[in-house]
Design a protein around this nucleic acid. Sequence first.
DNA 1: AATGAATGAGCGTTCATTCAT
DNA 2: CATGAATGAACGCTCATTCAT
Lengths: 189, 189, 189, 189
Amino acid sequence: MKHKDIAKKNRITQAVLNIVNEEGITSLSFGKIAKQAKVSSGTPYIYYKDKTDMLSNIYVEIKKLMDDGLAKKIENVSSTEDKLFEAVKHFAENFKKYPKERQFMFSLQNNHRLISESARALGMELAKPLFDLYSVAIEQNILKTNEVEIINVMLFAPVKWLIEDNPDVSNEKIQEVIVYSINSIIKDR
Amino acid sequence: MKHKDIAKKNRITQAVLNIVNEEGITSLSFGKIAKQAKVSSGTPYIYYKDKTDMLSNIYVEIKKLMDDGLAKKIENVSSTEDKLFEAVKHFAENFKKYPKERQFMFSLQNNHRLISESARALGMELAKPLFDLYSVAIEQNILKTNEVEIINVMLFAPVKWLIEDNPDVSNEKIQEVIVYSINSIIKDR
Amino acid sequence: MKHKDIAKKNRITQAVLNIVNEEGITSLSFGKIAKQAKVSSGTPYIYYKDKTDMLSNIYVEIKKLMDDGLAKKIENVSSTEDKLFEAVKHFAENFKKYPKERQFMFSLQNNHRLISESARALGMELAKPLFDLYSVAIEQNILKTNEVEIINVMLFAPVKWLIEDNPDVSNEKIQEVIVYSINSIIKDR
Amino acid sequence: MKHKDIAKKNRITQAVLNIVNEEGITSLSFGKIAKQAKVSSGTPYIYYKDKTDMLSNIYVEIKKLMDDGLAKKIENVSSTEDKLFEAVKHFAENFKKYPKERQFMFSLQNNHRLISESARALGMELAKPLFDLYSVAIEQNILKTNEVEIINVMLFAPVKWLIEDNPDVSNEKIQEVIVYSINSIIKDR
DNA sequence: AATGAATGAGCGTTCATTCAT
DNA sequence: CATGAATGAACGCTCATTCAT
């Protein structure tokens, strides 16, 4: 793909994110996308097969963006406890850094008919390193529970909801919530 | 005079819940509602002014259903800590008991353009007793934090996400998560 | 029909006239009529077979109202010239006196599918005395033309248009226009 | 790039005119337009923003068509009296030449809620040369009245009504009516 | 006689998608 | 590649009309 084309594709992606953010996923239409991205109404079909394909691709792209850099941060600390902390902090930071992307991502998770099965699966796969980390923690017996489901919700649900409710929440509050979350499932020493 | 058929109105409500549950809020249309509820396409307009009015009314109705009985349960226990526990348990139970209603409720909270301002306000108002309880707990100095935002997400986000992710999650897991949540913000004694 | 019923029927008629006047014939609906007349949506069907029947009946009623008293006024003057003058003045006065009725009447003449053939025919018939008067005038050879079509438009079109354009036009202007109209087709003596 | 199909737009315009002519403005719907013009139901929206925009544009177009050539005809004669005669004759001819357009134009003038304010204003503006001519005539003191309202109705109402009542009226009758009209407001010499 | 809930056809409009250019 | 005119199904909603009460 040429430079020009990439720019055009990016404009489309940005338009999608803007519209979902400002008007909600229910208001997203190809007409609005084309207008805001300043392309013709047929252009998105060059890059994507149909609406589902477009949303699926953008979804996966965003999932990767959100994930990007996590592995490195985890490697940089030694204890599993710290790794878990870094993981939660990583996503919290990205949720704040990319508010539109976060909104879009969760909008699609709540309306899963809008994306393809495979895109959903791919999204799940990206979370594998995290679940591997949970397994390590369980093996090391540092957690109060062995259930990954429970570990996951205790670590991520509070901070996710906090930022969703108020995207401009202070970093201090975010940190505080993460500490509570980590402590809620780490065994007392 | 032909009486308004409550059964018909209920069929409409159920159809709305079913469709939002199975296909997502983006797929909800009057055509589908009419077909599933086995009423004519004009019938919903006898009960509701327009789509926003319909969704708003069902939303408030469900909010009340979810809330119903909470006050009594809180009164039945004496310590604030127990009251908090009962409150979280109450909603967790109702989220499990009324999975369609839960889905619908959160779908509309994530797409608040679909309901009226007043319905949103009314929904918020119903949560007031809960926030009053937070205030009491803060005054009694039994919590690690004074921020209601933080209290709220620590108590409710994990269990909400848990049930959302897997509506058939066992009661044991739910209980476990609630315990972690409560402990995460209650001061150690 | 009982007193009560007549009152109800009148409320319906008035509602029809008001709506056509304020919002135009295109906005006339049974829903609006029922609401404004404070009757149920089914009530007009007791008095009228359907919409066409209702409009047709009101149309003929109004035609009669507009006509009412003309014969007497014509009898009261002796010369044919004066009779013509009285006739034009009569309608001009009624157009001013019953502005809603005038509007309604001409709205239906411009949208003749809205009333029945027979109602239209009946409306035409009411104009017969006027056309008889034209015949008399032609026989007496006091007019510049023998064509009733021409006589009719010269006498009525200007004053009709004047009042339509500006329902609050002064009586002086109306009189002036009628004089020009009469003079335009009466032979100079 | 597929060019906008002017033939298609014309078919839409013609369908609008036909329907208003045959069934009245109240019967005009996009369904009928699409069917008669043999285009899809969404096609009119390529050319027009909405129904009001469509009717407004066609209205202005027709107003221009009706006006076209008037200025030249007026220039070709010298006396103001002749200019007035030419003006009336011009519109009478066009009313006969374009019966559907005439019907449509007056239908919209009688239902002015159906077109935009600006379209109405533009339509009025086109009549300005005519009203300028009235002013000249008044200044030259050749008329029996100084009221433009009166001049206008005396000149145009009869011939308009004549053609409206019977679109196939003979040219002789039209001429006759125009002569009466002109004479009715021109001072005797 | 009168009501008003219910109907379903039709309304104006938007939409994802196609395809000639 | 890219355009944007064109499509036709579906949308939210209104309507005249019916009929059980």
